[in-house]
Amino acid sequence: MSKKIVGDDGKTYVQKKPIYKRVWFWILAIVVIAIFSSAMNGGSDKSSSKSPNSTQSTKATDDESSSSEETASSSSSENPKVSAEFTSALTKATQYANMMNMSKAGIYDQLTSDAGEQFPADAAQYAVDNVKADWNKNALEKAKQYQSKMSMSAEAIRDQLTSEAGEKFTQDEANYAIQHLNDN
């Protein structure tokens, strides 16, 4: 990773690789590009799938989104202590879970990030606690993306799914994804 060089003065110096030549930099760049393009497409990858069940899964996702929105609005009408900010955070969390297949921890970080949604920590925590999502399914969808678009090995995908610098899924969710990665 680094190269030792002896200088004119007889001292040994360590020459490191430039950041753009490091593997983790390219993995991070690809992940950011994938997330950005997925956000820009608005989840259109799901509707363009060649699977015969794609219409059903899109319909199911739409039903889940609307039922989550109904749950958010019904819970806000039942519980007057839930502020508009908490409801907005829940709506955003539902979008991230359903359209971008993000993990619970990833959604929390996105909701609280200064570069993200900038919700207060309590609103973000309320959102991730109340969002209706199948985290195993989200991990599996992310794993499929890594396998098809980046040709990663199963172990590399598992590492990316559980990494704090990656997707932040739990070990159980990543294990589920790897076990079902090649199921039809």
Rank of each mutant, 00 (worst) to 15 (best):
S103H: 03
S37A: 05
D114F: 05
G10I: 09
Y146L: 14
S68V: 15
G42M: 04
E167H: 08
K144H: 04
S88V: 09
K104M: 01
A105E: 14
L181R: 09
T71N: 15
F169P: 03
S74H: 09
S148T: 14
S76R: 06
A115R: 10
I157M: 02
V82H: 02
Q118E: 00
T170D: 07
Y96V: 00
E173T: 07
K3T: 01
A165R: 14
Y126V: 02
I107E: 01
D45Y: 11
S148E: 14
R22E: 07
D8S: 13
Q160G: 10
A165N: 15
G43S: 05
E78K: 04
M100W: 01
N184K: 15
Q179M: 01
K21F: 09
Q56C: 08
T55R: 13
S68L: 14
W135M: 05
D63Y: 08
M40V: 15
K17A: 06
F119N: 06
N79G: 01
G7T: 13
S51M: 13
D63T: 10
S153R: 04
S57C: 03
E164L: 15
S66P: 01
D122F: 08
V32T: 11
L111S: 01
R158W: 00
Q160D: 07
S66H: 09
K16Y: 10
Q56Y: 13
N41Y: 06
S103E: 06
M102F: 03
A105H: 07
Q95P: 00
N182P: 07
L181C: 08
N175H: 04
A156Q: 07
P120G: 10
Q110A: 00
I5S: 02
A29V: 08
K46F: 11
L111I: 01
I27S: 04
A143V: 04
E69Y: 11
T170Q: 07
S103M: 03
Q118P: 00
M40Q: 14
E85W: 09
S48E: 14
S2G: 08
M100C: 00
V32S: 10
S57H: 07
P80H: 01
P120C: 10
E78L: 04
Q15T: 05
D45S: 12
F86C: 12
S49P: 05
A115D: 11
F36Q: 11
N98R: 05
E70H: 12
M102S: 02
L161T: 02
Q145R: 14
M102L: 03
A60N: 13
S151G: 11
S2C: 03
W24P: 01
F36K: 13
P120I: 09
A93E: 06
K21I: 06
A29T: 12
Q171M: 12
A123E: 08
D172C: 12
Y20I: 12
I157Y: 01
D8T: 13
W135F: 06
M150K: 12
L161S: 02
A93L: 08
G106S: 06
